[in-house]
Nucleic acid binder design. Structure first.
Lengths: 183, 183
DNA sequence: TAAATTTATTAACAATTGTTATCGTATAGC
DNA sequence: GCTATACGATAACAATTGTTAATAAATTTA
């Protein structure tokens, strides 16, 4: 389950009561938090730093999502369906994380209707996000996608290495470098 | 809200009790059920036929989703957020549809926990579907996407006009014709 | 049935992207 | 500080896709 903003949650439910379920974890850059093929047992919340979700496609890394401060993340398929994660989760910068165990997460889902409602909303938001990504890929050219990213999410351009952004845009790093050169 | 399978719902809740909320609607091919810019007031369930969701991109139609028998559909953004639909919903074949009004749908969501749970599950499924579409677009070439469609969803290839499939794959109809020629 | 429209194929050329390789710079680890 | 690695730019060429146009077949409409 991907939780967009836990601050949002904290305004709705008695957050402090369940604070003890969250453990802090400090990691350096390039730390793998979840491997492809592993069972996801934790959901993370990012206090500081950034993470990426990626997978191996015929020997080439493809990064398809970035996460920053105040965002939550886990491999949604693995976490919600109890199957091995098809993706890697890895830190890009040194990061300060907080995690909750799957069983505790599920307990909150069951016992606190407001928590479930907020997760429902977050799931809907995420669905729309993925739909927009999908739509952008079938209607926009790579150059347009890059310019849109630059305009709408400049923090990604600023903080993320370019070759990760290239795979996120669906092109090679060489092609992205050419696009940047033309602008 | 997109409901994948209302039969699934009917096995969980007292379906017959709410049957009167659904109205039948028979439409010929190429009937527009929801226009871009309109408010979505209905959720449809397809008994027979097929529909497509599409939008206009600089004068060119882009179809991004198809729906067939036993599937439910509406413009998710418009229906759940109460904003004008960014998409057109249109029949491809002559179709037998059943629809429920937004207010009745919301009533079911509120009053029947099982209904809400199933919609939650359907939303999660749909999220994974959009994520997979997104991933396929950044990792696979058009030819691979066409072959995958042919293998996994042959009914789409069989029933849908080719130029709609081309835009769904993110390419022109000319390019799709070339790809087919090579196979 | 005839005419109009829609749909799919193909060709020629332009534009874009992929592939492979080289190079210089920046960064991280020892 | 030094070395190894990572990162990004660029070049040359191949492969793919887009664009425009012409054509033929299929389907719809009158």
């Amino acid at each position: 389950m991907i939780v967009e903003n836990l601050n949002k949650i904290s305004t709705h439910i008695n957050w402090v009561e369940y604070k003890h379920l969250w453990k802090q974890l400090n990691v350096p850059a390039k730390t793998i938090l979840l491997k492809e093929g592993e069972m996801s047992k934790r959901a993370y919340w990012i206090e500081k730093g950034c993470l990426r979700l990626w997978f191996n496609n015929n020997g080439k890394d493809i990064t398809f999502q970035f996460f920053f401060e105040n965002e939550g993340v886990s491999s949604i398929e693995s976490f919600s369906k109890n199957i091995p994660s098809p993706f890697y989760l890895e830190s890009i910068e040194p990061s300060v994380l907080h995690y909750i165990l799957k069983k505790d997460f599920e307990m909150l889902m069951e016992k606190i209707p407001d928590f479930k409602n907020i997760i429902f909303e977050a799931t809907l938001e995420r669905q729309i996000y993925y739909m927009e990504q999908f739509l952008s890929l079938i209607k926009d050219k790579p150059k347009e996608r890059y310019l849109k990213l630059l305009k709408e999410k400049p923090h990604i351009i600023q903080r993320i290495p370019q070759h990760y952004i290239a795979s996120y845009l669906g092109i090679t790093s060489v092609s992205l470098s050419r696009i940047r050169n033309k602008i």
